[in-house]
């Protein structure tokens, strides 16, 4: 029982980290078809935002609370610049956006290396988040609980915005049928920019949260990126709930695999699971039903 709860928790925890990293991607990749390899670097920018905020503010608790919205703005602003300068010209060439944004990611990594140095930096965890809580017989670190809660809040916020606000309705309209939305008077160009702002902002928030459980270096973002993409692929294009289910499932898979073998075999196991899974559902868990051929 203890082992089961422990694994379930590790799975949920890994899953919530994956989800935080993948949620923004699910918007930009899933809804706009842009493969943003610089998303990892936006996460890294969020990490450094938390670090810098703490250097300036001092108090760990206050700086975390400030850094979360600032991280959103930093990530969002970077995304907005990327979208308006480069990606806007490449929407009809999705594979090329992948390579272009990989180049952007390389540049951003080197900027971080030149500004903050190659060695990893650490952020002090605020007092209330240190230690663990006893839950159903296992000890659960509070930082992990915080990240889970943040993931839940982020998903809820995105869902609410998409479903109930006028901006969200416009985003869904453009995703559903770009031409028809434009005919109805929606400026798809502005919607694209807005979607990209939100998606990249979420990467910044994820970055701030991830400083609680690991150190920050210029290559931090990369380590999360591939897994985050796998979550979106398995979850299905453009479906937030797909990303949620896929993130938790992959997190649990990884946790269970790691218990019975090694961390390195777990990565391979997850890859095999996804390839097999795509045999059953090539478009991912949840798909937008369209009559298009793709």
């Amino acid at each position: 029982m203890d082992l089961f709860v422990g694994q379930l928790f590790t799975g949920l925890s890994t899953g919530s980290i994956l989800l935080l990293a993948a949620l923004g991607l699910s918007l930009t990749f899933g809804q706009m078809g842009v493969i943003n390899m610089a998303h990892g670097e936006f996460i890294m920018a969020g990490c450094y935002t938390a670090y810098v905020t703490q250097q300036v503010v001092g108090d760990a608790g206050v700086s975390l609370l400030i850094a979360l919205p600032i991280g959103f703005l930093v990530g969002g602003a970077m995304g907005l610049v990327l979208e308006s300068l480069l990606l806007r010209r490449l929407y009809h060439r999705p594979l090329d956006t992948l390579l272009v944004t990989f180049g952007v990611g390389l540049v951003l990594q080197q900027v971080a290396r030149d500004v903050f140095g190659a060695p990893a930096v650490n952020v002090t965890v605020p007092e209330p988040l240190r230690g663990g809580v006893d839950l159903l017989g296992t000890t659960v670190p509070k930082t992990r609980l915080f990240i889970m809660a943040l993931a839940v809040v982020a998903v809820a916020a995105v869902t609410l915005v998409l479903r109930f606000t006028p901006a969200g309705r416009r985003i869904r309209a453009v995703v559903g049928n770009r031409d028809l939305a434009e005919t109805a008077g929606v400026s798809s160009r502005r919607v694209d920019a807005g979607t990209f702002f939100i998606g990249s902002g979420l990467a910044g928030v994820a970055g701030v949260a991830l400083t609680l459980i690991g150190s920050t270096s210029p290559t931090t973002g990369q380590s999360y990126l591939v897994d985050a993409f796998l979550v979106v692929v398995a979850g299905g294009m453009g479906r937030i709930k797909g990303a949620v289910v896929a993130a938790v499932a992959l997190g649990t898979f990884q946790a269970v695999f790691e218990t019975y073998s090694t961390a390195s075999l777990a990565k391979v196991g997850v890859f095999v699971v996804i390839v097999v899974f795509l045999q059953l559902r090539p478009q991912g868990l949840f798909t937008l039903r369209t009559r298009s051929l793709a």
Binding site: R89, D96, L106, Q110, R113
Partner: peptide, 13 residues
């Protein structure tokens, strides 16, 4: 590294 990144951007775009 900058050159690599910028080459990716410039050539592909």
């Amino acid at each position: 590294t900058y050159a690599q990144g910028l080459l990716f951007i410039a050539v592909i775009a």
